[in-house]
Simulated scan of single mutants.
Amino acid sequence: MPLLTNPTGARHQTKQGFAYQTLRRAILACELQPGERLVIDDLATRLGVSIIPVREALQILQSEGLVASVPHVGAAVAPISRASIVDVFTVLEGLELMATRLVALEGSPTALETLTRLVAVMNDASHAGRFEEWADLNTRFHHAISASTGLPLLGEMTDRVLGLWDRVRRYYFNGVLCHRVADAQREHRDILAAIIARDFPTLEAHVRTHNRGALAAYLAHLEHE
Rank of each mutant, 00 (worst) to 15 (best):
G155N: 02
G94S: 05
I191A: 01
G17T: 11
H179Q: 03
I85C: 00
L222Q: 09
N123A: 14
L112S: 07
T22L: 09
A19G: 02
R189C: 15
L164K: 14
A120W: 04
A111L: 02
D124M: 14
E106P: 05
L102I: 00
N6T: 08
L215E: 07
L151Q: 00
D190A: 11
D159C: 15
L61I: 08
L151G: 00
A120I: 07
L151V: 04
I27N: 14
L28G: 11
D136N: 02
D41W: 10
L219K: 03
G163F: 12
E93H: 04
G48N: 08
E96I: 00
S50N: 00
L32Q: 06
R82Q: 13
N174L: 00
V103W: 01
V181E: 10
I196L: 09
C30L: 11
Q21E: 10
V70F: 02
Q185Y: 12
P152H: 15
A220F: 09
A128P: 07
R180C: 13
G150F: 00
A68Q: 13
R170H: 08
H206S: 14
A128K: 09
G48M: 04
G9M: 01
G150A: 00
A205C: 01
G17N: 11
R37Q: 09
V119H: 09
N174A: 04
H142D: 00
L61N: 11
L219N: 09
A216H: 12
E56D: 03
S81V: 04
A10W: 11
V121R: 08
A26V: 10
A125K: 12
G17W: 08
A197L: 08
A147V: 02
L192E: 03
L222G: 06
A44M: 03
A217M: 06
L105M: 06
Y218W: 15
I52Y: 13
E64S: 00
R189P: 11
Y218V: 06
V161Q: 15
S146K: 09
A197F: 04
H221F: 08
S63G: 10
A26L: 12
V207T: 08
R25E: 15
R130N: 11
I80V: 06
F200I: 11
T110V: 05
R37L: 05
L162H: 08
I195S: 01
L4D: 15
R46P: 07
H221Y: 13
I196D: 13
L23I: 11
Q62D: 10
I196G: 04
G74C: 06
N211M: 12
E223F: 10
F173P: 05
R82N: 05
R25N: 15
R82H: 13
E106L: 06
E36K: 07
A205N: 08
R46N: 05
Q16K: 15
L58D: 06
S126P: 03
S108K: 05
